[in-house]
Amino acid sequence: MAVAGRPIIKGAPVALSVRPRPNFVETPSVRDLTERTLAYLAAGFPIHFRGPAGTGKTTLALHVAAQLGRPVMLIAGDEEFATSDLIGGQYGYRYRKVIDQFIHSVLKYEEDSTQRWVDHRLTTACREGFTLVYDEFTRSRPEANNVLLGVLEEQLLVLPTMSREDAYVKVHPDFRAIFTSNPQEYAGVHEVQDALSDRLVTIDLDYYDRETEIAITAARSSLPPEEAARIVDLVRDFRASGEYDQTPTLRACIMIAQVSAMQDLQPSARDPRFVGICLDLLESKTSFTSEARDRRAKQRKMLLSLIDHHCGNAVKKKEQDRDED
């Protein structure tokens, strides 16, 4: 994600205007998923994209949000989040002093101070009808997300009592919510409470199909599609092998392809620099412990054979034959 804009001026809330990169890839599978999601959102249901790391949940959420054409409020879930981090809170004081001497012999003197309320992103989104993208919301503790229950069901945001005159905020009709979460992640995530999960339309995302992964890799790296295809096939075969602790994703494809393109390398098993990049990025998917040394050695051997299989002479010869035909 790339953010561009003016320096932040203190005070006014900042919303995001999301738009696709010039090289954004929208394959039929992405388009189908987007249209399905927009149908649910149009009916007023919040969406929850659930899937492992590297399946494009956040990008898809932003893409869907862009189609809605409303400013976007992006929140990233965090263990330290409390309800006030979503809705806002009392920050500082506002002092007022009145000295009234309208009649010169009568001095009227009043002074009071009130706590100042500041809206946070959820409140701003509800008031203004923005699209809320709550990324990795399961990283926030479940009790912090309780305030969402009323927002999603009764369309009412309940602010802490005694905080301000409008303790209830009627949710704007244009307000839409998109959530993402990774159920396979075990570090720093929480369970979703049933009440919230029940209000969400959950769409499970898996790794994209080969064509989409090739198109995205080629677009993000400027490599020709046939060269991007070799890298994608290599990573997909490694993913299918199961010989890793951390699943190799599309990000690995993009990293290998981008570095290769920048270094002007051909994805070839004969180029030791390309092989080195592949090993650097894919070998790290196995945990580094003294016990796993043998396993790492086996994994390296398997990776070298995969590189040779997908980027070796046999492939080059096959492509040359195809070109001649």
């Binding site: 994600m1 953010v3 006014a12 900042v14 205007s17 999301v18 738009r19 862009a66 400013p71």
Partner: peptide, 15 residues
């Protein structure tokens, strides 16, 4: 400027 009488400011995010 970007405000255009709205109560918020927008910055662009490319995905």
């Amino acid at each position: 400027s970007e405000g255009k009488g709205q109560g918020w400011r927008e910055i662009t995010l490319e995905y």
